[in-house]
Design a protein around this nucleic acid. Structure first.
Lengths: 337, 337
DNA sequence: CGTCAGGTTTTCCACGTTGTAAAAAGTGCG
DNA sequence: CGCACTTTTTACAACGTGGAAAACCTGACG
């Protein structure tokens, strides 16, 4: 292996522990000893072996973050923020993706690499409450994103129903009467999609507008392609919505693509609202109105909560944080200025 | 800490080493011993401590990958592919981003977390040859992406000049006469942007078309915003190109946005070609013609080369691999079918 | 019954680090 | 010069694992 404390100690003519003390900035080292050791360190190019240090200390200084897809810009941006914030706190982030598949999420939550990391942040899609209850790993876990769980874990999520209501209300306000919802999922009443669907349905009901199943387009996933296909099916089924509220921005991008292919203008013929405020939404021929969760606040809260747990608050009851959100109106609902 | 071999050994009434042997599938263990140990493992929920294992073996089973920006979909897709491929080879990938800043790239190449990882893959932007020559870390390093270095490291890059030529030639072929280049950089003749610029310039020259500086738009970065601003400046300066070849897809997306704002139609008034083939290019009101490097091949080659080095080929001369690329023509140059 | 071969299990140690405790060196004071 | 006290340095053990080699079995064979 590389240069170890032993090598430095030998060269400086002191004990291993003294070198260790210098490296760790221990107070009681005479200036001349410190200098001699430091020179040996520099000459040999010594670098502490983190593996050994971690073994000794029982901590690795690494946390893991798992998101469904790295290629979903929302999660890339979120991961970016977590890495950045954690770096400032001297933690390294191990980034992983689950594909949104339950088995992968369970593996991650169980910490199948747990012994290398101190804690976990997971943004689940399919994970079930029972998976969490059956969890064996003792590494702290923070749940990210919008699913609801009763299992006792720290959880960070915006108020999805309220956010969806805001989006739907905006569409009603600008005069739309047939508002479709794109991106619903089968089953799983607690899933995020259902929360957003509920917000949409509530507003439709309160406004006396239709919210029947014919206006709801189910998708398999959350990609542009899913959005494009779902809207194609919606239109093929004879529906003529004058607005669509999409589960996320990627679906909205796909939706707008299909609308363009069918010769429908956005927002004149169909207004579109997305969710996530990914960078991509601010570009394109028609910029996208979207619900913007405060990603930086989410990332910061998740990291801080996890590190709090690591710092000893092992047994405090789980906390729940609801970061804010904002509706950002752009051309897809209000037209070009 | 958690359950260790010692705990299992105690419970099963055998030595630590026997448990270790069972865990590692050592041949010479009697079935009944193996069974007894296995039961103890199951009952206690033992999981090997990777940190200790790594300390003992001198390997961590982790490699690091640094890209400029995670939020650039090209790199997100690339990282995705590397993670996937490495996982199949039982390696964990530590993902990092440098912001394309030289100091960060140097830090990474030096392996400021090197003692935790076995090897590095770096996609540099600003890194200079001298930085590589001054490198002290002995962890194998593979360079990714299109910059040229003389320092002796494995390097994976497509033929940028040829790729750029293909793109420029396509624009000439469809009859464009004033082709702008967006995304040039100041200085650094070896940088990727210069290679693509050269390809463009060669084709313009060979076709008897202008390639003067007035047609070259310099950008600070590689984002959508950079592309949007650069094209705005280009148009403001009085240029009326009938095509733009962009350094990458993000810049192209920004370019198309500005063109739309200025009332210019794509491809009727201005054809656009990008580079990277990010997913986003396949959507939008006008899909984007682009040069598609074979990302999966790049990811695979990078990972394999690195693991080859780790497997012992320490001193073989550095290799250089040129994965293929393809021009994918879409609506931004050939119109909607 | 002793010996040997081969399979099985154990003992010992090292990987590089740091906490503990204690030894060594230094300081001040009577 | 010796004592009490503080500062500086050291020895040792331990974190959990796996390689090397020794020790222990069992059974076959002379």
């Amino acid at each position: 292996m590389g240069i170890s404390l032993k090598d430095v100690a030998q060269r400086a003519g002191v004990s291993i522990k003294t070198v260790s003390n210098v490296v760790n900035g221990y107070r009681h080292v005479t200036p001349q000893t410190r200098q001699r050791v430091q020179r040996a360190i520099d000459e040999l190019g010594y670098r502490p072996n983190l593996t050994a240090r971690h073994l000794r200390k029982g901590r690795t200084g690494m946390i893991a973050l798992a998101v469904p897809e790295l290629t979903n810009p929302y999660f890339a941006e979120l991961a970016d923020a977590v890495i950045e914030h954690a770096a400032g706190l001297d933690y390294i982030v191990l980034l992983d993706h689950t594909g949104g598949r339950r088995d992968q999420e369970v593996l991650f939550a169980q910490g199948f690499r747990a012994r290398v990391i101190d804690g976990l942040i997971l943004s689940p899609i399919e994970l079930e409450n029972e998976d969490l209850l059956a969890r064996e790993s003792d590494a702290p876990l923070v749940l990210l994103g919008e699913r609801e769980y009763s299992a006792p874990y720290d959880h960070i999520a915006i108020d999805n129903v309220a956010a969806a209501r805001t989006a739907a209300a905006h569409l009603v306000e600008i005069g739309r009467r047939r508002v479709a919802f794109v991106g619903a999922r089968h089953g799983r009443a607690r899933a995020t999609a259902h929360l957003r669907l509920r917000g949409w349905r509530e507003v439709m009901g309160e406004s006396g507008l239709p919210s029947d199943d014919a206006l709801i387009a189910v998708t398999d996933g959350y990609s542009r392609e899913d959005g494009a296909q779902a809207v194609a099916r919606l239109l093929d089924s004879g529906q003529r919505p004058d607005a669509v509220f999409c589960y996320n921005d990627l679906i909205a991008v796909g939706a707008m693509r299909t609308l363009a292919e069918r010769g429908l203008r956005v927002p004149d013929d169909v207004a579109v609202v997305g969710f996530d405020d990914i960078e991509e939404s601010r570009y394109g021929a028609t910029t996208l109105t979207t619900v913007a969760p405060h990603k930086r606040a989410i990332a910061r809260a998740a990291t801080d909560m996890l590190l709090d747990r690591l710092a000893g608050e092992a047994d405090t009851p789980p906390r729940r944080i609801q970061p804010g959100f904002a509706l950002i109106t752009r051309e897809s609902t209000v037209g070009r200025p």
